[in-house]
């Protein structure tokens, strides 16, 4: 593998977004790019990430390879890169190590690091194609604020999407709270718009602890999309220029 990324900051943000959810995971490298799928220890949340091969220049791969990485170790090495550095990932066919090269834009500094890889026997889940009943896109900073605010009052949040809007509500020992968003279109700054596409009303309850965790991906994209259907896991997606980070969260069941 040899994959060169114009901005090391992209990988730094991706790893920052997922390192508190999963510790060890495989980076699966194939023709479509570098992908990752991993569940948290409780098997309640799943992260699915893709950095498309088009996002690298060049992207060269002789045969598919799984890079078993400890994300804490990778974070330590990525801290040694500036966000604007050019990052090159290199690995042999049956690699024991992953090589990371950081070059500054002026081309007068080259840093070379290697991290040890590990064999990870990772469970892969098949995620069915789903036509969601509701898709809500909103500023990622707003979603983060709602999750943090409501998490002060409660462990869980009810998300209800209807024609009127989307309502996040919670109740706990000290009281209760809710935030309702209505659809609006910001012509000058589309990334600040809230869009609600609905085929039928949805009401689901989720653990806020995980949602707060997902919001660490807010640095990746100014927009987040929540996709919901009754009785299926929530999809929280942060799209990047050439790739995505998606989180799935199992709903709470029964009252």
């Amino acid at each position: 593998l040899e994959a060169r990324l114009e901005q090391a900051g992209v990988l730094k943000k991706v790893v920052d977004a997922i390192k508190d959810l999963v510790q060890d995971c495989n980076f699966d490298c194939n023709d479509s790019g570098i992908a990752l799928q991993a569940m948290d220890n409780s098997h309640v949340a799943l992260v699915s990430m893709l950095l498309k091969s088009e996002g690298f220049s060049p992207y060269r791969l002789d045969r598919n390879v799984a890079l078993g990485v400890n994300l804490t170790s990778l974070t330590k090495v990525l801290r040694c890169a500036q966000n604007e550095d050019i990052l090159t990932l290199k690995a042999e066919d049956a690699p024991d190590t992953l090589s990371l090269v950081f070059e500054n834009a002026e081309n007068d500094r080259i840093s070379e690091y290697e991290i040890k890889l590990m064999d990870i026997d990772q469970e892969h889940l098949g995620i069915p194609e789903t036509e969601y009943a509701a898709a809500i896109s909103m500023p990622s900073a707003e979603f983060q604020r709602i999750c943090r605010d409501l998490n002060q009052l409660s462990e869980s949040v009810a998300i209800e999407a209807s024609k009127e809007g989307v309502k996040f509500s919670c109740s706990g020992d000290i009281g209760s709270g809710s935030v309702t968003l209505r659809q609006h279109n910001n012509v000058d700054r589309p990334e600040l718009s809230t869009k609600i596409e609905l085929t039928e009303p949805v009401a689901l309850t989720f653990s806020l602890k995980y949602l707060v965790n997902f919001c660490k991906a807010s640095a990746l994209s100014s927009v987040v999309t929540l996709s919901l259907s009754n009785e299926v896991p929530l999809l929280v997606e942060y799209a990047m220029g050439s790739g995505f980070v998606r989180f799935y969260l199992a709903p709470k069941i029964g009252e």
Partner: peptide
């Protein structure tokens, strides 16, 4: 209070 089910309830193993 509601129970937290795991993702295995929804997603099959590949």
């Amino acid at each position: 209070p509601a129970d937290q089910g795991s993702l295995h309830r929804y997603f099959g193993q590949r």
